[in-house]
Design a protein around this nucleic acid. Structure first.
Lengths: 192, 192
DNA sequence: CAGGATCGCTAGCAGTGCTAGGATTCTGGG
DNA sequence: CCCAGAATCCTAGCACTGCTAGCGATCCTG
């Protein structure tokens, strides 16, 4: 019965290969270049094997996104831990968030802008998904009233997300990014 | 030579018909349903005529977006004019912005989230494009220092955009929208 | 009324996500 | 050792996408 184990292991490896290939291809040439044929060629299998692992292309993108949530949570945690004070933590986390989106644009798109039906509010959401939000919430906590923590975190997140997406699509000049970020942090840490 | 004029007029009417059909179809069934074949059927012409008016599908979407900018600018101006004071104006404009995005999601997507290479910072941008931004800037002016007006306007805009997109994609619960909006306005009008 | 330009159509290309069906390989029992 | 049955994976193809070449008909001009 060890053969069965080997097969399952190989299958898991192939699944990882698909996700990795999709992420790499997306990051180097954009999501438009990620076609099922191209992906199949990359992992040196035929197209239909993709569908024995994932329901469809969107499911593959969702799997890539899930990996991204873990990365983002790690970045935010590191930034918060390294910050000197509470106000600095807000600025550092904001910087880490936008920096992540700038460095990994394709990954960020899969996570937040492209339509991939990931269960966000649902309890069966991937474990890493709420971790990034929790990291943001902990950062925001010192500047929020007790009953507004969640809503303020969501608002802060939205502002960061808006800055990132509008800048990436050419709607905002990249040169003024630091200035906008400083203004945002300034206004959010206003009363404290 | 009046015949030439009639032909040009008919041609202009057809171009408007294309834009209108694209907008209506997108608003009723989403942009995925807007295919060149479907569009051609809607205006009762064959596919290739679309390409004698527009360079491609993206150009049609861009034309729809331009119409949207005029609508949005009008909504924002009305909200600002109807507001009692400066602080109320900020809240009213924020509400008008998010309400526009909620009421006309497909139009909003064409304007801000889908990739349509409209010249944003360029001087040959459509006339209505900067009008909405100017409206926002006038609203923000009373709560901004002189040298930060533009950057603060962009930041405020980004926050609204982020709220709208994250909510529309299911990342934020719609129920808490008003609360987030109030928090945002509160923080931005903090020092004043 | 002929000549020529303009116009809008049919047909088709290359590419997309996805799937049905069969061939090939492997598995486990006699 | 052999062979039925199951698992696996590939070839071929479907319906659709945006877009374009090339042809006929139509209309204006001299």
């Amino acid at each position: 019965m060890a053969i069965r184990e080997r097969r399952e292991r190989e299958r898991a490896e192939r699944e990882r290969a698909i996700i990795t290939a999709a992420r790499d291809l997306a990051e180097s040439e954009g999501w438009d270049a990620v076609t099922t044929r191209r992906l199949a060629a990359e992992i040196e299998y035929s197209q239909p094997v993709l569908y024995s692992h994932f329901k469809g292309k969107e499911a593959i993108m969702a799997a890539v996104a899930v990996e991204g949530f873990a990365d983002l949570a790690r970045d935010l945690a590191a930034a918060r831990a390294a910050a000197a004070g509470e106000r600095q933590a807000v600025a550092a986390v904001a910087e880490a968030y936008t920096s992540f989106a700038e460095r990994r644009p394709a990954l960020y798109d899969a996570m937040f802008t492209l339509r991939v039906d990931l269960p966000f509010a649902s309890p069966d959401a991937p474990i890493d998904l709420p971790r990034g939000f929790a990291e943001l919430a902990e950062t925001v906590r010192p500047i929020a009233a007790a009953d507004e923590l969640e809503a303020l975190t969501e608002t802060f997140w939205s502002a960061l997300h808006g800055l990132v997406t509008l800048m990436r699509s050419g709607r905002l000049r990249r040169a003024d990014h630091a200035r906008r970020l400083a203004l945002l942090v300034d206004r959010f840490t206003c009363g404290t």
